[in-house]
Amino acid sequence: MLQVNKLSFAYDTSNVLEGLSFEVAQGEHVAIMGESGCGKSTLLKLVYGLLTPGDGNILWGKEEVKGPLYRLVPGESYMKYLSQEFDLMPFTTVAENISEHLSVFFPKEMKERTDELLEMIEMTADAKTKVKNLSGGQQQRVALARVLAQKPDVLLLDEPFSHIDNFRKNSLRRNLFRYLKEEKITCLTATHDHLDVLPFADRILVLKDKELLIEGATRQVYESPPNIYVASLFGEANILPITVLKSYADSKRNIIVYAHEFKVSNSSGLATKVKKIYPMGGYTLVEGDSEDGTLFFHSEKDLKIGTKVYLNVSIETINKRLKDLP
């Protein structure tokens, strides 16, 4: 088990993280989310041992992670860290990069392991291509296979698919996270992309203002966001007084509604005037003006700017959000 205990860190005199505590079980996949600059990458570097905590400590089992003040070569041998800088050998081949740290005394096993990882990143055909001739997205895939080659106990991923095109990204996500579960590799993924999180992460940690704002099971955090900041990490979201949606409601509380949770009607509901439209393929994201300000909602029908529509939210969604409010 990975344990982070009252962890704080500052660059110079400016605190980046304050008092973080959480645990990650063996084989668990935890996503770290939050706005840019909230400390996601810093947290991964602390866990790996590239930085020394100002306060607190980090344990893997009973072994404490030591930072660069205590180790000549920072980084723990049982962990692998994939940063946004790929650290590849540009003048050697894809296969050579992946197999660099595998034992040459077992050539059959080395080839089998290399071939397995080439298949996972969907680059078998590029095995003999020199890395310097690859695109940025291809290099990111090689870097991913390279950190997995030795089957680490803990894998730390910092925006692992940021350079990869959508054509490859979806299948690579499935391949990678399925592989990690099968091998029971503990994984922490720092990401901005909710599609890295919702289908794959067991739990979510959300950082804001130097602190751990919330942690919880992925589905629970998504379905019951405590505030608009957390909800917006998963897509367009709105915050509204409950009385706007249900006029008979005896409450002054606000609830959060995701854009896809609105249902468009021609006759009754929250009156909204279409202001802007953004075609998204299977649906349209609509920006509208209502009595309570700007709203974002999805529509399966083509709407024209200036059209007046009415928005409704299911009673099940309303009751769930009200139940989850403090």
Rank of each mutant, 00 (worst) to 15 (best):
D126C: 10
R174F: 10
I121D: 05
D292M: 15
L102P: 14
A201L: 07
F296E: 07
H163G: 07
A149D: 04
L118D: 12
K275V: 15
I204T: 05
K252N: 13
E300L: 07
E76H: 02
T13N: 08
F167K: 04
A237P: 10
T218K: 02
V154S: 11
S135C: 10
E300V: 01
D12E: 15
I256Q: 12
K62N: 06
Y310I: 10
R219D: 09
G37V: 00
E122G: 06
T294S: 15
F167R: 07
F106L: 06
L180V: 00
V313G: 11
V94C: 10
N5L: 05
I204W: 09
L198S: 05
M120G: 06
G306R: 13
V313D: 12
T191D: 13
L144A: 09
K276H: 06
Y70K: 08
Y310R: 11
S268R: 09
Y229E: 04
I32H: 00
A10K: 03
Y11L: 04
F105D: 08
P152L: 05
L51N: 03
V65E: 00
L134C: 09
R253D: 07
A125H: 11
L311W: 02
I32F: 07
L17E: 08
I228H: 02
R203T: 04
R174Y: 08
L198G: 02
G27D: 06
E112K: 03
A237T: 14
T92Q: 12
Y278K: 15
H192P: 04
Q26V: 06
K128G: 05
E159N: 02
M1T: 13
T114I: 12
I185T: 08
E287A: 07
E109N: 12
E223I: 05
V221E: 01
L213D: 01
I214A: 01
V24L: 12
A237D: 13
G282I: 11
V16A: 10
T272D: 09
S77T: 03
S268Q: 08
M123H: 06
T272F: 02
G49D: 00
T186V: 05
L88M: 12
K252E: 15
E64T: 04
W60N: 03
E159Q: 03
L117C: 05
A271G: 13
A95T: 11
V104Q: 14
Q138W: 04
H192G: 06
L155P: 01
L205P: 11
E64S: 10
G49N: 02
E100H: 04
K301P: 00
K273D: 10
D126M: 14
K132F: 01
E211G: 07
F9P: 14
D153H: 09
F167E: 09
K252M: 08
V16C: 09
Y283H: 14
I58K: 10
L311H: 13
D324C: 00
I239N: 10
D324V: 03
A259I: 14
K308T: 07
F86W: 06
S135I: 09
E119L: 01
A25W: 00
R253G: 07
L44C: 14
D55E: 15
L118I: 11
R174M: 10
G56T: 03
